[in-house]
Nucleic acid binder design. Structure first.
Lengths: 165, 165
DNA sequence: CGGCAAGTTCAGTCTTGACTGAACCGACCG
DNA sequence: CGGTCGGTTCAGTCAAGACTGAACTTGCCG
Protein backbone atom coordinates (compact mmCIF):
# COMPACT_ATOMS: atom_id res chain seq x y z
CA UNK A 1 0.00 0.00 0.00
CA UNK A 2 2.75 2.40 0.96
CA UNK A 3 4.45 1.29 -2.20
CA UNK A 4 1.41 1.97 -4.30
CA UNK A 5 1.18 5.34 -2.64
CA UNK A 6 4.75 6.21 -3.40
CA UNK A 7 4.29 5.18 -7.01
CA UNK A 8 1.26 7.41 -7.22
CA UNK A 9 3.11 10.44 -5.82
CA UNK A 10 5.85 9.92 -8.32
CA UNK A 11 3.36 9.70 -11.10
CA UNK A 12 1.73 12.93 -9.98
CA UNK A 13 5.10 14.63 -10.02
CA UNK A 14 5.74 13.34 -13.49
CA UNK A 15 2.45 14.65 -14.76
CA UNK A 16 3.14 17.98 -13.11
CA UNK A 17 6.42 18.28 -14.95
CA UNK A 18 4.64 17.49 -18.15
CA UNK A 19 2.10 20.25 -17.65
CA UNK A 20 4.85 22.57 -16.53
CA UNK A 21 6.19 22.48 -20.05
CA UNK A 22 2.75 23.64 -21.15
CA UNK A 23 3.09 26.69 -18.96
CA UNK A 24 1.34 25.60 -15.77
CA UNK A 25 3.13 26.21 -12.46
CA UNK A 26 4.45 23.00 -11.03
CA UNK A 27 2.08 22.95 -8.08
CA UNK A 28 -0.94 23.51 -10.31
CA UNK A 29 0.07 20.46 -12.30
CA UNK A 30 0.41 18.46 -9.11
CA UNK A 31 -3.06 19.43 -8.00
CA UNK A 32 -4.52 18.48 -11.35
CA UNK A 33 -2.66 15.20 -11.34
CA UNK A 34 -3.64 14.36 -7.81
CA UNK A 35 -7.30 15.10 -8.50
CA UNK A 36 -7.14 12.62 -11.35
CA UNK A 37 -6.23 9.73 -9.07
CA UNK A 38 -7.18 10.64 -5.50
CA UNK A 39 -9.76 8.98 -3.34
CA UNK A 40 -12.34 10.37 -2.90
CA UNK A 41 -12.46 12.37 -6.11
CA UNK A 42 -13.27 15.57 -4.22
CA UNK A 43 -10.51 17.01 -2.09
CA UNK A 44 -10.37 19.91 0.30
CA UNK A 45 -7.47 22.36 0.35
CA UNK A 46 -6.25 20.76 3.53
CA UNK A 47 -6.18 17.34 1.93
CA UNK A 48 -4.40 18.72 -1.12
CA UNK A 49 -1.84 20.52 1.02
CA UNK A 50 -1.24 17.31 2.93
CA UNK A 51 -0.99 15.03 -0.06
CA UNK A 52 1.20 17.36 -2.09
CA UNK A 53 3.29 18.76 0.77
CA UNK A 54 2.51 22.37 -0.07
CA UNK A 55 1.31 25.42 1.76
CA UNK A 56 -2.28 26.54 2.18
CA UNK A 57 -1.36 29.69 0.29
CA UNK A 58 -0.14 27.70 -2.66
CA UNK A 59 -3.31 25.61 -2.73
CA UNK A 60 -5.46 28.71 -2.67
CA UNK A 61 -3.59 30.39 -5.51
CA UNK A 62 -3.24 27.34 -7.70
CA UNK A 63 -6.76 26.00 -7.28
CA UNK A 64 -7.97 29.46 -8.25
CA UNK A 65 -5.78 29.35 -11.32
CA UNK A 66 -7.02 25.92 -12.29
CA UNK A 67 -10.62 26.85 -11.71
CA UNK A 68 -10.43 29.93 -13.92
CA UNK A 69 -8.70 27.80 -16.53
CA UNK A 70 -11.61 25.38 -16.27
CA UNK A 71 -9.39 22.41 -15.46
CA UNK A 72 -10.77 22.00 -11.96
CA UNK A 73 -14.07 22.87 -10.36
CA UNK A 74 -14.82 24.09 -6.90
CA UNK A 75 -17.80 22.42 -5.25
CA UNK A 76 -19.35 22.88 -1.83
CA UNK A 77 -21.96 20.32 -0.88
CA UNK A 78 -24.89 22.06 0.85
CA UNK A 79 -24.20 22.40 4.54
CA UNK A 80 -20.51 21.62 4.26
CA UNK A 81 -17.97 23.93 5.89
CA UNK A 82 -15.27 23.80 3.29
CA UNK A 83 -14.80 23.84 -0.43
CA UNK A 84 -13.95 20.75 -2.37
CA UNK A 85 -12.14 20.49 -5.67
CA UNK A 86 -12.48 17.94 -8.41
CA UNK A 87 -11.94 17.34 -12.09
CA UNK A 88 -14.94 18.55 -14.08
CA UNK A 89 -16.38 16.30 -16.76
CA UNK A 90 -15.72 18.81 -19.48
CA UNK A 91 -12.18 19.68 -18.43
CA UNK A 92 -10.88 18.61 -21.81
CA UNK A 93 -13.21 21.13 -23.46
CA UNK A 94 -11.41 23.89 -21.62
CA UNK A 95 -7.90 22.64 -22.30
CA UNK A 96 -8.98 22.72 -25.84
CA UNK A 97 -10.49 26.14 -25.72
CA UNK A 98 -7.38 27.71 -24.28
CA UNK A 99 -5.29 26.00 -26.92
CA UNK A 100 -7.55 27.40 -29.61
CA UNK A 101 -7.30 30.88 -28.15
CA UNK A 102 -3.53 30.68 -28.13
CA UNK A 103 -3.65 29.70 -31.76
CA UNK A 104 -5.86 32.63 -32.66
CA UNK A 105 -3.58 35.00 -30.81
CA UNK A 106 -0.60 33.66 -32.71
CA UNK A 107 -2.43 33.88 -36.02
CA UNK A 108 -3.28 37.49 -35.29
CA UNK A 109 0.31 38.46 -34.52
CA UNK A 110 1.53 36.78 -37.67
CA UNK A 111 -1.11 38.53 -39.72
CA UNK A 112 0.18 41.85 -38.37
CA UNK A 113 3.68 40.91 -39.39
CA UNK A 114 2.42 40.13 -42.85
CA UNK A 115 0.95 43.58 -43.09
CA UNK A 116 4.28 45.08 -42.03
CA UNK A 117 6.21 43.51 -44.89
CA UNK A 118 3.50 44.10 -47.46
CA UNK A 119 5.68 46.51 -49.44
CA UNK A 120 8.65 44.16 -49.65
CA UNK A 121 9.78 42.05 -52.60
CA UNK A 122 7.93 38.82 -53.23
CA UNK A 123 10.56 36.62 -51.65
CA UNK A 124 10.37 38.44 -48.34
CA UNK A 125 6.62 38.10 -48.25
CA UNK A 126 6.70 34.44 -49.11
CA UNK A 127 8.23 33.50 -45.76
CA UNK A 128 5.49 35.15 -43.81
CA UNK A 129 2.75 34.04 -46.16
CA UNK A 130 3.71 30.45 -45.63
CA UNK A 131 3.58 30.50 -41.86
CA UNK A 132 0.52 32.71 -41.97
CA UNK A 133 -1.34 30.18 -44.07
CA UNK A 134 -0.30 27.50 -41.66
CA UNK A 135 -1.68 29.25 -38.60
CA UNK A 136 -4.84 30.27 -40.36
CA UNK A 137 -5.46 26.73 -41.44
CA UNK A 138 -4.99 25.41 -37.94
CA UNK A 139 -7.14 28.07 -36.47
CA UNK A 140 -9.89 26.80 -38.71
CA UNK A 141 -9.26 23.06 -38.32
CA UNK A 142 -8.79 22.93 -34.57
CA UNK A 143 -12.40 23.61 -33.69
CA UNK A 144 -13.50 21.12 -36.30
CA UNK A 145 -11.37 18.50 -34.66
CA UNK A 146 -13.01 19.40 -31.38
CA UNK A 147 -16.51 18.89 -32.67
CA UNK A 148 -15.52 15.60 -34.20
CA UNK A 149 -14.22 14.38 -30.88
CA UNK A 150 -17.36 15.59 -29.21
CA UNK A 151 -19.51 13.75 -31.71
CA UNK A 152 -17.61 10.46 -31.61
CA UNK A 153 -17.49 10.71 -27.87
CA UNK A 154 -21.08 11.71 -27.12
CA UNK A 155 -22.42 8.31 -26.02
CA UNK A 156 -20.78 8.44 -22.57
CA UNK A 157 -21.83 10.80 -19.83
CA UNK A 158 -22.33 10.11 -16.19
CA UNK A 159 -24.04 12.18 -13.45
CA UNK A 160 -21.86 13.76 -10.73
CA UNK A 161 -22.27 13.12 -7.04
CA UNK A 162 -20.66 15.34 -4.43
CA UNK A 163 -19.41 13.84 -1.22
CA UNK A 164 -16.56 15.25 0.82
CA UNK A 165 -14.67 12.98 3.18
CA UNK B 1 12.11 53.88 -43.00
CA UNK B 2 13.31 54.25 -39.43
CA UNK B 3 9.67 54.07 -38.48
CA UNK B 4 9.13 50.91 -40.46
CA UNK B 5 12.21 49.51 -38.82
CA UNK B 6 11.00 50.31 -35.35
CA UNK B 7 7.64 48.74 -36.09
CA UNK B 8 9.41 45.63 -37.28
CA UNK B 9 11.53 45.36 -34.13
CA UNK B 10 8.43 45.69 -32.02
CA UNK B 11 6.73 43.01 -34.02
CA UNK B 12 9.70 40.69 -33.57
CA UNK B 13 9.55 41.25 -29.84
CA UNK B 14 5.87 40.45 -29.86
CA UNK B 15 6.40 37.22 -31.72
CA UNK B 16 9.20 36.32 -29.34
CA UNK B 17 6.89 36.72 -26.37
CA UNK B 18 4.37 34.55 -28.10
CA UNK B 19 6.85 31.76 -28.61
CA UNK B 20 8.15 32.24 -25.12
CA UNK B 21 4.82 30.98 -23.85
CA UNK B 22 5.44 27.87 -25.94
CA UNK B 23 8.64 27.27 -24.05
CA UNK B 24 11.25 28.92 -26.27
CA UNK B 25 13.77 31.28 -24.67
CA UNK B 26 13.00 34.85 -25.52
CA UNK B 27 16.08 35.35 -27.65
CA UNK B 28 15.37 32.22 -29.66
CA UNK B 29 11.94 33.61 -30.47
CA UNK B 30 13.49 36.89 -31.52
CA UNK B 31 15.87 35.14 -33.87
CA UNK B 32 13.08 33.14 -35.42
CA UNK B 33 10.93 36.25 -35.79
CA UNK B 34 13.72 38.28 -37.27
CA UNK B 35 14.55 35.59 -39.79
CA UNK B 36 10.95 35.70 -40.92
CA UNK B 37 11.16 39.32 -41.97
CA UNK B 38 14.81 40.27 -42.44
CA UNK B 39 16.51 41.29 -45.63
CA UNK B 40 18.29 39.32 -46.96
CA UNK B 41 16.67 36.13 -45.71
CA UNK B 42 20.02 34.69 -44.64
CA UNK B 43 21.70 36.33 -41.68
CA UNK B 44 25.05 35.85 -40.04
CA UNK B 45 25.45 35.71 -36.29
CA UNK B 46 26.94 39.16 -36.37
CA UNK B 47 23.93 40.54 -38.17
CA UNK B 48 21.59 38.82 -35.78
CA UNK B 49 23.51 40.11 -32.77
CA UNK B 50 23.33 43.60 -34.21
CA UNK B 51 19.68 43.55 -35.15
CA UNK B 52 18.53 41.97 -31.91
CA UNK B 53 20.97 43.70 -29.57
CA UNK B 54 22.26 40.47 -28.09
CA UNK B 55 25.62 38.88 -27.43
CA UNK B 56 27.51 36.57 -29.74
CA UNK B 57 27.22 33.91 -27.06
CA UNK B 58 23.48 34.16 -27.04
CA UNK B 59 23.30 33.91 -30.81
CA UNK B 60 25.48 30.84 -30.79
CA UNK B 61 23.42 29.06 -28.16
CA UNK B 62 20.04 30.01 -29.49
CA UNK B 63 20.74 29.36 -33.16
CA UNK B 64 21.98 25.94 -32.10
CA UNK B 65 18.75 25.38 -30.21
CA UNK B 66 16.63 26.48 -33.14
CA UNK B 67 18.61 24.39 -35.58
CA UNK B 68 18.23 21.21 -33.55
CA UNK B 69 14.53 22.01 -33.20
CA UNK B 70 14.40 22.30 -36.98
CA UNK B 71 12.99 25.82 -36.92
CA UNK B 72 16.07 27.36 -38.48
CA UNK B 73 18.76 26.04 -40.75
CA UNK B 74 22.44 26.82 -40.87
CA UNK B 75 23.85 27.35 -44.34
CA UNK B 76 27.31 28.21 -45.53
CA UNK B 77 27.62 29.13 -49.18
CA UNK B 78 30.72 27.48 -50.65
CA UNK B 79 33.76 29.65 -50.08
CA UNK B 80 32.09 31.88 -47.51
CA UNK B 81 33.81 32.57 -44.22
CA UNK B 82 30.83 32.55 -41.94
CA UNK B 83 27.64 30.65 -41.33
CA UNK B 84 24.29 32.01 -42.32
CA UNK B 85 20.90 31.22 -40.82
CA UNK B 86 17.50 31.19 -42.39
CA UNK B 87 14.02 29.77 -42.08
CA UNK B 88 13.83 26.37 -43.75
CA UNK B 89 10.94 25.66 -46.06
CA UNK B 90 9.71 22.80 -43.97
CA UNK B 91 10.00 24.57 -40.62
CA UNK B 92 6.30 24.00 -40.00
CA UNK B 93 6.86 20.26 -40.38
CA UNK B 94 9.21 20.39 -37.43
CA UNK B 95 7.01 22.55 -35.23
CA UNK B 96 4.43 19.97 -35.94
CA UNK B 97 6.64 17.04 -35.21
CA UNK B 98 7.70 18.38 -31.83
CA UNK B 99 4.08 19.03 -30.96
CA UNK B 100 3.22 15.47 -31.88
CA UNK B 101 6.07 14.13 -29.80
CA UNK B 102 4.92 16.14 -26.80
CA UNK B 103 1.48 14.65 -27.26
CA UNK B 104 2.83 11.14 -27.37
CA UNK B 105 4.88 11.74 -24.26
CA UNK B 106 1.81 12.99 -22.46
CA UNK B 107 -0.27 10.06 -23.66
CA UNK B 108 2.38 7.69 -22.37
CA UNK B 109 2.46 9.25 -18.91
CA UNK B 110 -1.29 9.16 -18.66
CA UNK B 111 -1.33 5.54 -19.73
CA UNK B 112 1.07 4.76 -16.91
CA UNK B 113 -1.23 6.50 -14.47
CA UNK B 114 -4.10 4.43 -15.76
CA UNK B 115 -2.14 1.31 -15.01
CA UNK B 116 -1.46 2.54 -11.48
CA UNK B 117 -5.14 2.90 -10.59
CA UNK B 118 -6.18 -0.29 -12.35
CA UNK B 119 -7.20 -1.94 -9.09
CA UNK B 120 -9.39 0.93 -7.95
CA UNK B 121 -13.20 1.19 -8.03
CA UNK B 122 -14.79 2.04 -11.34
CA UNK B 123 -15.34 5.69 -10.49
CA UNK B 124 -11.68 6.28 -9.85
CA UNK B 125 -10.71 4.72 -13.11
CA UNK B 126 -13.27 6.66 -15.07
CA UNK B 127 -11.44 9.96 -14.54
CA UNK B 128 -8.23 8.65 -15.99
CA UNK B 129 -9.94 6.71 -18.72
CA UNK B 130 -11.57 9.83 -19.97
CA UNK B 131 -8.43 11.90 -20.27
CA UNK B 132 -6.56 8.88 -21.54
CA UNK B 133 -9.02 8.44 -24.38
CA UNK B 134 -8.67 12.10 -25.17
CA UNK B 135 -4.92 12.00 -25.49
CA UNK B 136 -4.96 8.79 -27.44
CA UNK B 137 -7.42 10.22 -29.86
CA UNK B 138 -5.33 13.30 -30.42
CA UNK B 139 -2.21 11.32 -30.77
CA UNK B 140 -3.90 9.54 -33.62
CA UNK B 141 -5.61 12.52 -35.24
CA UNK B 142 -2.73 14.98 -35.14
CA UNK B 143 -0.64 13.24 -37.77
CA UNK B 144 -3.72 12.86 -39.93
CA UNK B 145 -4.24 16.58 -39.74
CA UNK B 146 -0.63 17.02 -40.79
CA UNK B 147 -0.98 14.91 -43.87
CA UNK B 148 -4.13 16.70 -44.83
CA UNK B 149 -2.33 20.04 -44.64
CA UNK B 150 0.51 18.62 -46.63
CA UNK B 151 -1.86 17.37 -49.29
CA UNK B 152 -3.91 20.55 -49.58
CA UNK B 153 -0.72 22.55 -49.58
CA UNK B 154 1.40 20.50 -51.97
CA UNK B 155 1.11 22.72 -55.07
CA UNK B 156 3.62 25.33 -53.80
CA UNK B 157 7.31 24.70 -53.49
CA UNK B 158 10.18 26.93 -54.50
CA UNK B 159 13.91 26.20 -54.86
CA UNK B 160 16.31 27.78 -52.32
CA UNK B 161 19.13 30.12 -53.21
CA UNK B 162 21.90 30.97 -50.80
CA UNK B 163 23.44 34.41 -50.82
CA UNK B 164 24.98 36.06 -47.81
CA UNK B 165 25.23 39.83 -47.70
C1' DC C 1 54.41 28.65 -38.43
C1' DG C 2 51.94 33.23 -36.49
C1' DG C 3 47.82 35.48 -36.23
C1' DC C 4 43.25 36.58 -37.12
C1' DA C 5 38.34 35.58 -37.57
C1' DA C 6 34.26 32.65 -36.50
C1' DG C 7 32.17 30.03 -33.33
C1' DT C 8 31.71 27.57 -28.85
C1' DT C 9 31.86 27.17 -23.96
C1' DC C 10 32.02 28.56 -19.23
C1' DA C 11 31.57 31.05 -14.96
C1' DG C 12 29.03 34.72 -13.11
C1' DT C 13 25.04 38.11 -12.92
C1' DC C 14 20.43 39.29 -12.87
C1' DT C 15 15.49 38.70 -13.59
C1' DT C 16 11.46 36.16 -13.08
C1' DG C 17 8.16 33.88 -10.73
C1' DA C 18 6.91 29.81 -7.78
C1' DC C 19 6.28 29.04 -3.19
C1' DT C 20 6.02 30.06 1.84
C1' DG C 21 4.68 32.05 6.58
C1' DA C 22 2.09 35.19 8.56
C1' DA C 23 -1.20 38.68 8.67
C1' DC C 24 -5.76 39.52 7.30
C1' DC C 25 -10.95 38.97 6.07
C1' DG C 26 -15.51 37.06 6.48
C1' DA C 27 -18.84 33.68 7.80
C1' DC C 28 -20.78 30.81 10.88
C1' DC C 29 -21.67 29.06 15.78
C1' DG C 30 -21.76 29.27 20.49
C1' DC D 1 -21.25 39.79 20.16
C1' DG D 2 -16.44 36.95 20.59
C1' DG D 3 -14.08 32.98 18.81
C1' DT D 4 -12.83 29.81 15.50
C1' DC D 5 -12.36 27.99 11.04
C1' DG D 6 -11.79 28.34 6.02
C1' DG D 7 -9.87 31.02 2.64
C1' DT D 8 -7.32 34.97 0.58
C1' DT D 9 -3.57 38.17 0.19
C1' DC D 10 0.96 40.03 0.79
C1' DA D 11 5.82 40.64 1.54
C1' DG D 12 9.86 38.02 1.40
C1' DT D 13 12.84 33.99 0.03
C1' DC D 14 14.75 31.04 -3.13
C1' DA D 15 15.82 28.55 -7.35
C1' DA D 16 15.87 28.26 -12.33
C1' DG D 17 17.57 29.72 -16.30
C1' DA D 18 18.29 33.48 -19.79
C1' DC D 19 21.85 36.25 -21.02
C1' DT D 20 26.58 38.25 -20.91
C1' DG D 21 31.83 38.92 -21.19
C1' DA D 22 35.76 36.64 -21.56
C1' DA D 23 38.49 32.71 -22.20
C1' DC D 24 39.11 29.03 -25.32
C1' DT D 25 39.11 26.12 -29.81
C1' DT D 26 39.36 25.59 -34.60
C1' DG D 27 40.33 26.52 -39.19
C1' DC D 28 42.15 29.52 -42.61
C1' DC D 29 45.34 32.70 -44.82
C1' DG D 30 49.54 35.29 -45.17
Amino acid sequence: MADADRALREWVEELAMLYEREGLPRMAGRIFGWLLVCEPPEQTMEQLAGALQGSKASMSTMTRLLVTAGLVERVRPPGARRDGFRIPHDHWTNMWRSRTQALSAAAAVIARGRALVAGRPAEARRRLDEIHDLYRWFEKEYPRLLSRWERERRPRRRPPRVRLA
